[in-house]
Simulated scan of single mutants.
Amino acid sequence: MNKLDQEISKKIIDWKRTRYNRINISERLKKYESRWNAVMFFMNAFAIVLTIVSLKFPLKTGIDTIIAGCFSIYVILLQYFLTNQNYETRSLRFHYEQLEIEKLRYSLKALLRNSSLPYQAKQEKYNSITNQYLISLKNNENHEKIDDKIVKNELNEFHEEKNNSNINGKNKKNYTNVTDRSLDNIFFYVNLAIFLGVILLVISIYY
């Protein structure tokens, strides 16, 4: 195998990892969208109920009205923020990008198998495919460190299982147990805690 073929083989492997990164962030963003849709439904419902209760059964201190007003504003601002995050649209973009990367990988594999192609023509074709890949990366949002870490661990787990298929499952390392510490995930749980805190606060002032 000449130097060009070695470089093509390396690119095929590297781009596979990049593609898996894109798949992982696409699934991760889709999960955020699904979770936020569920939580925002309950937050909006609670804001409506809280407003109605504060108007129909107002407390002398007026604290219920203040809480209802502040929580309603909080929900509106949170919805505006989530709209700008565009989780669903971004997830689709990453999905289409990984399909494009896989198509380019197939082009590299076909190029590698084409032994009849002259070296110069093969080099030019390789440069063209590489340029398409770089343009795809340039025109799209990058994945985060958490995605690369998850993919790296999953690939390590896959190779270990492949090389040690007879090992008892209890002795295998759990590579895929990676905690999502991204800002998006932390932000979700912080707001979930705030929501639960408001519920407990409302219960305490009425009971």
Rank of each mutant, 00 (worst) to 15 (best):
F41M: 13
N44Y: 04
A47E: 02
A47Y: 07
A47N: 05
L50G: 02
T51C: 05
I52R: 12
I52C: 12
K56N: 07
K56R: 04
P58D: 01
P58S: 00
K60V: 09
K60I: 10
G62D: 00
I63P: 02
D64G: 10
T65V: 15
A68Y: 04
A68W: 05
F71L: 15
I73Q: 14
I73H: 14
I73C: 15
Y74C: 13
I76H: 03
I76D: 01
Q79P: 09
Q79T: 04
L82R: 00
N84A: 03
Q85G: 00
Y87C: 03
E88L: 15
E88P: 11
F94E: 00
H95L: 08
Q98M: 12
L99V: 14
E100M: 06
E100V: 06
E100W: 04
E102I: 11
K103W: 00
R105K: 06
Y106M: 09
L108P: 01
K109S: 15
L111Y: 06
L111P: 06
R113C: 10
N114K: 08
S115F: 12
S116G: 05
P118H: 00
Y119T: 05
Q120K: 13
A121R: 05
Q123C: 10
Y126Q: 03
I129T: 02
T130Q: 01
T130I: 05
N131T: 04
Y133C: 08
L134G: 05
I135Q: 05
N139P: 07
N140S: 11
E141N: 09
E141L: 10
N142V: 14
N142K: 10
N142R: 11
H143A: 14
E144I: 15
D147P: 10
D148S: 14
K149F: 13
K149N: 04
V151E: 00
K152A: 14
N153H: 11
E154L: 15
E154R: 14
N156A: 12
E157H: 07
H159V: 14
E160D: 05
E161W: 10
E161C: 05
N164Q: 02
